[in-house]
Amino acid sequence: MSDTVASTVQPAAVEEVGEARSLGQDAWRSLRSNAMFWSAVLLIGLFVLMSIWPSLFTKTDPSFGNISNVRATPSAEHWFGTDTQGYDIYARTIYGARASILVGVLASLTTLLLGGVIGVVSGFYGRWLDALLSRITDIFYAIPLILGGILFMASFPNGPNSNYFIVVGKVVLVLTVFGWPTIARLMRSSVLQVKPNEYVLAARALGASPWRIIRSHILPNALAPAIVVATINLGVFIVVEATLSFLGIGLTPPAISWGVAISDALSSIRTYPHVLFFPSLFLSLAVLAFILLGDAVRDAFDPKSR
């Protein structure tokens, strides 16, 4: 369709070939004017701030339970009400952001790193190394994330006084172990798509080192889709963390997290729905923000979808 509507309607692109824009600049241009992108960024910024300095948002101590005032409905003093143990739900929800954001961000980074390296090596070097790494990827891909998470967390349960960061670290570890194959498969196929291109062949013929070829030719082209998926996965990881907490094997009290709060509140859903509502809302907003961000970035990098 070289001579159809598209080429007729967008002669602007033709006219400006002189100052050719890179894919990245092009994507940024379209992101800049995307309201969805900015709302996602704003929400994520808010949640990140919440997880770093929760005290900016509330002066109430989240671990102070007032037994004489449980399950209070929202009021001026307790904006979101209080939960089954008299904790202030607003404060708990603010402080709960840290666990979810930490788990999501760390697990996304580690899966991106592990999956990325394995995918690139597998796609770039090929032959037996590819066969081996691809089979290993298949093995971990064959175990559903939530199932692997349950088995792992049940095998290495938290003690009553486990260190917060060790518990978070364990959840991140299991999400990494069973979450990297998606990224690795994606990276491998991107690399295989980029590799036969003539500029890569030319770089090879000119004797560029493999690392240089990967860094300057393969990565810039293969990274965008992987980052998009990692961003969307971030939301998935937050949900899996909450699910593990729901099953009682993820983060456990006294740790404060949305998952823990939701699973506590579920038992009293009939009588005190507001206890469930606020942590669920925050969790869903966080997941939504990352999905929207991923979607926006993907649309920006994929001119076909415009």
């Binding site: 939301g235 949900v239 909450a242 699910t243 729901f246 939701i262 699973s263 579920l266 469930l276 669920s280 969790l283 869903s284 907003l285 997941v287 939504l288 999905i291 929207l292």
Partner: peptide
């Protein structure tokens, strides 16, 4: 669909 995706299944 976004609504469903962002709320955990157990909720």
């Amino acid at each position: 669909t976004l609504f469903v995706i962002s709320i955990p299944v157990f909720v």
